[in-house]
Deep mutational scan, measured.
Amino acid sequence: TGEEYIAVGDFTAQQVGDLTFKKGEILLAIEKKPDGWWIAKDAKGNEGLVPRTYLEPYS
């Protein structure tokens, strides 16, 4: 299990392996990579890379 984050903006996948999401979606951070791209999972179970700058902790 990971930590929940809320998307603060829309993001469209730029390449294969990225995860597209919309502002307000809750994402589960699976792995926090030091380069600023995290592996996350959305509510539908889709998994991919997301930019850290689009996420804020969800409580």
Rank of each mutant, 00 (worst) to 15 (best):
T1P: 12
T1C: 12
T1W: 14
T1A: 13
T1G: 13
T1Q: 13
G2D: 10
G2C: 13
G2N: 12
G2A: 12
E3D: 12
E3L: 11
E3S: 10
E3T: 10
E3M: 13
E3Q: 12
E4V: 14
Y5F: 10
Y5N: 01
Y5H: 04
Y5Q: 01
I6M: 08
I6K: 07
A7G: 04
A7V: 04
V8I: 15
V8G: 04
V8E: 02
V8D: 02
G9V: 13
G9N: 15
G9T: 14
D10Q: 04
D10G: 06
D10H: 06
D10S: 10
D10L: 02
D10I: 03
F11W: 14
F11N: 02
F11A: 02
F11C: 05
T12G: 05
T12C: 11
T12H: 11
T12F: 13
T12K: 09
A13Y: 03
A13W: 04
A13D: 03
A13L: 04
A13R: 07
A13Q: 05
Q14G: 09
Q15K: 15
Q15D: 09
Q15T: 11
V16K: 14
V16R: 11
V16N: 10
V16S: 12
V16I: 12
V16A: 13
V16E: 14
V16Q: 13
G17N: 07
G17K: 04
G17Y: 06
G17S: 06
D18G: 14
D18S: 11
D18A: 13
L19H: 01
L19W: 00
L19D: 00
L19E: 01
L19Y: 00
L19N: 00
T20L: 02
T20M: 05
T20N: 08
T20Q: 07
T20I: 04
F21I: 11
F21N: 00
F21D: 01
F21S: 00
F21T: 02
F21Q: 00
K22W: 08
K22N: 08
K22L: 09
K22R: 12
K22F: 09
K23Y: 07
K23C: 11
K23N: 05
G24R: 01
G24N: 06
G24C: 07
G24H: 05
G24S: 04
G24Q: 02
E25T: 08
E25K: 00
E25S: 08
E25G: 04
I26L: 09
I26K: 06
I26F: 05
I26Q: 03
I26N: 02
I26T: 05
L27F: 08
L27Y: 02
L27A: 00
L27Q: 00
L27H: 00
L27E: 01
L28Q: 09
L28V: 14
L28A: 06
A29R: 04
A29M: 13
A29T: 08
A29F: 08
A29H: 02
A29V: 15
I30W: 04
I30E: 02
I30T: 05
I30A: 02
I30C: 06
E31H: 13
E31T: 11
E31Q: 12
E31S: 11
K32H: 06
K32Y: 08
K32R: 08
K33C: 12
K33G: 11
K33S: 10
K33D: 06
K33R: 15
P34H: 11
P34R: 09
P34E: 13
P34S: 14
P34F: 10
P34A: 13
P34C: 11
P34D: 14
D35L: 04
D35C: 10
D35H: 07
D35E: 07
D35T: 07
D35A: 04
D35W: 05
G36P: 03
G36S: 04
G36Q: 05
W37P: 03
W37G: 04
W37A: 05
W37L: 07
W37K: 08
W37I: 08
W38A: 02
W38S: 00
W38M: 08
W38L: 07
I39A: 05
I39M: 11
I39P: 02
I39T: 07
I39W: 13
A40F: 08
A40P: 01
A40T: 04
A40D: 01
A40R: 00
A40K: 00
K41Y: 06
K41Q: 11
K41I: 13
K41P: 01
D42F: 00
D42E: 01
D42Q: 01
D42A: 02
D42V: 02
A43F: 09
A43M: 13
A43N: 10
A43E: 10
A43W: 10
K44L: 12
K44M: 13
K44C: 13
G45T: 01
G45H: 04
G45S: 03
G45I: 01
N46M: 08
N46Y: 08
N46S: 08
N46T: 08
N46P: 02
N46L: 07
N46H: 09
N46R: 09
N46I: 08
E47K: 12
E47S: 11
E47R: 10
E47I: 15
E47M: 15
E47F: 14
G48T: 01
G48L: 02
G48E: 02
G48A: 02
G48K: 00
G48C: 04
G48V: 03
L49P: 03
L49E: 05
L49Y: 14
L49C: 12
V50P: 03
V50A: 07
V50W: 01
P51G: 05
P51K: 08
P51E: 08
P51H: 15
P51Q: 10
R52V: 14
R52I: 14
R52T: 12
R52N: 14
R52F: 14
T53H: 14
T53G: 12
T53N: 14
Y54S: 08
Y54G: 04
Y54A: 08
L55N: 01
L55C: 05
L55V: 04
L55F: 05
L55Y: 02
L55W: 01
L55M: 06
L55D: 02
L55A: 00
E56A: 12
E56Y: 09
P57R: 09
P57T: 07
P57M: 08
P57G: 05
P57A: 09
P57Y: 08
Y58L: 11
Y58D: 04
Y58E: 04
Y58N: 07
Y58F: 11
Y58M: 09
Y58Q: 06
Y58S: 07
S59V: 14
S59K: 13
S59F: 14
S59D: 13
S59L: 13
